[in-house]
Amino acid sequence: MIGKVKVNQSFGAMCAYVLQEKAPGKGAEVLAAHGVRTDSAAHMAADFDAVRAMRPGLGKAVLHVALAFPVEEKEKLTNEVMGRIAQDYLKGLRIDPENTQWAVVRHQDKTHPHMHLVVNRVDLDGQTVSDQFIRSRSVDVCKGIEQDYGLIVADQVGHRQAREIGPTPKQQQATTPKEQQSADWSRARQEIGRALSYTAGQARSFDELREALRPRGIELELTRRKDGSPAGVVFAQDGHRVKGSQVGRAYSAGNLEAGFAKARELGHDPAQQWQQLGQDYALAKLAAEYAQAKQRQAQQQLSQQPSQGLGMGD
């Protein structure tokens, strides 16, 4: 299970997208909702905006999460099950599904099961739903749901499904096969770069980097000179081939080899570094929870203070 989290501004645009009223062939189907009408995108957006008005200064009030599952789980993931998963996902993010507006819509335009969850970041009490560390928290929640429902672990099938959730702006604007190919290649380059930013610094050789990239659906191809030194490196994803230097100067064959040599010289242990990354995420999560606890405590203290007789205009 993969959750792709975004925070946006317009409920109108988001509701029109998830309900797919202009593209009924995509088979958008509302699975569940709370606090909003689902008969039209206009009505849904109006209901979201009515509550959003309690926090006019909150620019990005739209929380959008695309939840994707491996194609192998299609039979298991009935509409009822996916609806329950959406509510469990909200609870995992510490969002009260009974005190928050939300809607979950399943799309049928991909081979793998996926749904779109739209949430109002202003709850029914007028309080702001925090998006602090929400992406890292989402990863933890998805892993927990995989265990609870006996689902295939996302890392076992790679991240292809996450890429299929929706096109990039450049892909949407492409009108010719050539433009589409260029847009698809650009997207592959961006995702390869994102993967390398997490893996290249943890590896001590091209072999270790290759093994770290494979679970992400990326292959590494290396050519060497006669003396054995690396001549060039190419990364391949879904048929798109990208040279390391096209991803970034740091990922050319020579610069990667220099980084591996430095890591070997310093005696870095990749297992320890991955453990450190996990600890960093845990500390970030703890910091977020501590900040939220302090905020709640301050709000409680403020509410317990005796009234000073202030009027509505004060």
Rank of each mutant, 00 (worst) to 15 (best):
M1W: 00
I2K: 00
I2Q: 01
K4W: 04
V5K: 07
N8Y: 11
N8A: 12
S10Q: 06
A13H: 14
A13V: 11
M14S: 13
M14I: 11
C15R: 07
C15D: 10
L19Y: 07
L19D: 06
Q20M: 15
P24E: 06
G25S: 10
K26G: 07
A32D: 02
R37N: 14
A41D: 02
A41I: 03
A42Q: 15
H43V: 14
M44Q: 10
D47E: 08
D49C: 15
V51T: 13
V51D: 11
R55G: 09
G57F: 14
L58P: 00
L63C: 03
H64T: 00
V65R: 03
T78Q: 00
R84C: 11
A86V: 00
Q87Y: 08
Q87K: 09
D88G: 02
Y89M: 05
G92N: 02
I95R: 06
D96L: 07
P97R: 05
P97D: 05
P97K: 02
E98T: 05
N99D: 13
Q101T: 09
W102V: 00
V105M: 09
K110I: 05
H112T: 10
H114S: 01
H114L: 01
H116E: 09
H116N: 10
L117S: 06
V118I: 10
R121N: 03
R121H: 01
T128M: 15
T128Y: 14
V129N: 07
D131N: 10
D140A: 05
V141Q: 00
V141T: 05
I145W: 00
E146T: 08
Q147N: 14
Y149Q: 00
L151P: 00
V153F: 11
A154Y: 04
D155L: 08
Q156W: 03
E164C: 07
T168V: 09
Q172C: 06
Q173C: 10
A174R: 04
T176L: 10
Q181G: 15
S182K: 14
R187V: 06
A188L: 05
E191W: 10
E191I: 08
I192Y: 05
I192W: 01
G193W: 00
A195R: 01
A195V: 02
A200Q: 04
S205P: 03
E208V: 06
R210W: 09
E211H: 11
E211F: 09
I218S: 04
I218E: 02
E219Q: 13
E219V: 11
E219M: 12
T223M: 09
V233L: 07
V234T: 14
A236I: 08
D238R: 06
G239T: 03
H240C: 13
H240G: 09
H240W: 14
H240M: 13
V242K: 02
G244S: 07
Q246M: 15
Q246P: 12
Q246S: 13
Q246I: 13
R249V: 12
R249K: 11
Y251A: 01
N255V: 05
L256K: 05
F260D: 07
A261R: 14
K262W: 12
A263R: 08
H268A: 04
P270E: 10
W274E: 14
G278Q: 08
D280E: 15
A282D: 09
L286F: 15
A288M: 11
E289H: 12
Y290F: 13
A293K: 10
R296G: 07
A298V: 01
Q299S: 09
Q308F: 04
G309S: 01
G313N: 13
